[in-house]
């Protein structure tokens, strides 16, 4: 029999409404409110061993203290899983369910589950990390939500394969996972084209991504006083690739001291898997033009070339990693007082 600990707010914990939203977390060794209905859904295979109740305002205003209490209770009670909500469209409750489930999963590694209406702000706070069952927007939807949550909870407890969002009833997590289809890709393409040509319904396998737009920084007023850094996604690294940066789908970046050299030629080469490397290996400055920047420095066109050169591989590198690398490199450059960056690809 699996043990489940349940989390609800002051309202569903039957303590009170808005006037009780400031109550501190408390623990009861019994099923209260939705925990009871949930228990019915998992009967015979799992049982709810207790209910945590916390005021929504208290949780959102005293997050650390609330989580400390909650995590301690969970550590003492040793459940196999934590279930929170459903929060429907209650924003602060949704944020609390998100906070509790993400913390439990990340810190204790336990399976977790919650439920929310898709416009609840709590959804964005946790849906990429935990399963959020899709619910209606008010407590009237409780009777529809609990069976779905119960079924999914049992699957998570047993470590069974979780199906597609629409099949299991959870909100899409924004993760695109690779699976083996029944037909080969070309057959699926021909079928899709024939459907289009005969005005029959079809479904794309890849909805177009939405892109971020970056506003360019203001122009540098006086280049002759500016420190310029050189950054590349062209995979130019010192010979031997000391930091083992990947040739595609980079998981890291490197930085190398170029203050004492006038060009990359000689000491550097490319490990990038996305272009003909022969000409870059002859002269890596063709990809990352340290030679010209150093000439500009000597001529006084620019004030100074920043002492470190930053590099990674762009080919096949996930945008998630690119954002992380850019943020990390940008922070270093900003703190070092760099005024501008020459950023080259391949």
């Amino acid at each position: 029999m699996y043990k489940i600990l349940y989390y609800v707010n002051q309202f569903f914990g039957q303590i009170g409404g808005e006037d009780k939203a400031g109550i501190e977390p408390e623990f009861h060794q019994k099923s209260i409110g939705p925990a009871m209905g949930f228990g019915v859904q998992v009967k015979g295979q799992a049982e709810v061993i207790g209910t945590l109740i916390c005021g929504d305002n208290y949780f959102n205003e005293n997050r650390e203290a609330a989580l400390e209490y909650i995590m301690n209770v969970i550590k003492e009670q040793k459940p196999d899983m934590v279930v929170a909500g459903p929060a429907f469209n209650a924003g602060r409750y949704g944020m609390a369910c998100a906070g509790v489930t993400v913390a439990v999963q990340e810190q204790l590694g336990l399976p977790v589950l919650t439920g929310m209406y898709e416009e609840n702000p709590g959804v964005d706070a946790c849906k990429t990390k935990v399963y959020v069952v899709k619910t209606g927007n008010s407590a009237a939807a409780m009777k529809d939500a609990l069976p779905v949550m119960g079924k999914l909870a049992l699957k998570l407890l047993k470590g069974e394969e979780i199906g597609k969002p629409a099949e299991e009833g959870y909100l899409p997590q924004g993760r695109r996972l690779t699976v083996i289809a029944d037909e080969r890709g070309s057959k699926r393409a021909v079928d899709m084209l024939v459907a289009r040509l005969y005005d029959k319904p079809f479904e794309t396998e890849l909805p177009m991504p939405v892109f971020d737009r970056v506003t360019p920084a203001a122009a540098i007023k006086d280049l002759s006083k500016a420190t310029i850094a050189l950054v590349t996604t062209g995979g130019i690294v010192p010979h031997g690739n000391p930091d083992r940066i990947q040739s595609a789908s980079a998981q890291k970046w490197g930085k190398y001291d170029v203050s004492k050299i006038d060009e990359l030629k000689g000491d550097y080469y490319t490990i990038h898997g996305g272009y003909d490397p022969v000409y870059a290996n002859e002269k890596p400055d063709r990809v990352a033009p340290l030679d010209l920047l150093k000439e500009y420095e000597k001529e006084g066109v620019i004030g100074k070339v920043f002492e470190y050169f930053y590099t990674t591989t762009g080919t096949g590198t996930a945008v998630g990693n690119s954002i992380k690398f850019g943020t990390e490199i940008g922070k270093e450059l900003k703190e070092a007082g760099v005024d501008g960056v020459i950023l080259t690809s391949t």
């Binding site: 695109r176 996972l177 890709g185 393409a189 177009m208 991504p209 996930a318 998630g320």
Partner: peptide, 29 residues
């Protein structure tokens, strides 16, 4: 698609609203 180890990154390097019918061969990462 190149959506990273976790499949959470944007899958293509470009986008256009006209591409309404696309077959995917999976995530290279």
């Amino acid at each position: 698609e190149c959506s990273g180890w976790d499949g959470a990154s944007q899958p293509l390097a470009d986008t256009t609203p006209e591409a309404v019918a696309v077959v995917s061969g999976g995530n290279v990462s």
